[in-house]
Design a protein around this nucleic acid. Structure first.
Lengths: 129, 129
DNA sequence: CGCCTTTATAACCACGGTCTGATATTGTCG
DNA sequence: CGACAATATCAGACCGTGGTTATAAAGGCG
């Protein structure tokens, strides 16, 4: 199951949002999600499993409870996939990188730059046919 | 269908990637996707429909062709959703320079690989004793 | 106009994901 | 140990997604 599929489910997105604020037990998550979505305890448990098995969460047993927390790795992966498209809505980032490439950056810690190549959208239109 | 669901499908992700380089006709997209995934023309057309109806693409008729292009709006929405979790892997606002640095070093070699995306994340919990 | 090309839609089917109730597992406590 | 609490797993039903074939719609051209 792809990371995008994992987040395709509203229950799982909600669980991740809940865990974003910090560790929660399966039961706490379950209580909220069951109330909000009207699904059963096994239902929630299975969503937790999907999140677990796809690396979205870590689990820490505490007594008979399971404390779930967000593992950001897959989220970061998705963020990276989206990175390619970020230039579509923010030229600012692009402009900034250009600035830095020009050597206008303040000499902060560790900022070794080299002329960054400018990515061009809109491939040169070739007439085929 | 939620934006995450739309990108859950590998064919649709591939189409978006193709369109990232610029406008393409349905036929051009189709030719590539059909070859890479072994699906039929209607199959591709339906994926284009899903992308269209969910705002991921714009279409511009040119004669009998349909020129598709990326509409970044839903992608930006997802990016915004992920924003909340960005602090998990970059606590510093300095993340911007990291992004730029990554953009430089992350030189994607060609992507003419097999369509099947694999997932190399396998967690091995369960310390036996 | 008639035919070809390009793309979309319709109808149908198969598979897999997600739900539920039942039950197993594990830990705590008296 | 036995009862209870917390959580996970199992087995089965259901439904939506995504594939296919057949066909429609719309533009270009001789």
């Amino acid at each position: 199951m792809h990371a995008f599929d994992v987040l395709g489910d509203p229950v799982r997105r909600r669980i991740i949002e809940l865990l974003a604020d910090g560790e929660m037990s399966a039961g706490e998550v379950g209580a909220i999600v069951q109330r909000e979505f009207g699904i059963s305890q096994p239902g929630v448990s299975q969503h937790l499993r999907v999140l677990r098995e796809n690396g979205f969460t870590t689990v820490r047993p505490q007594g008979t409870r399971r404390l779930y927390a967000v593992d950001p790795a897959p989220l970061q992966e998705l963020d990276h996939w989206l990175e390619r498209y970020r230039s579509f809505w923010s030229q600012r980032l692009d402009a900034l990188s250009t600035e830095i490439a020009r050597g206008r950056s303040r000499r902060r810690s560790g900022s070794g730059e080299s002329p960054a190549d400018h990515q061009t959208r809109r491939r040169s239109d070739g007439t085929d046919g």
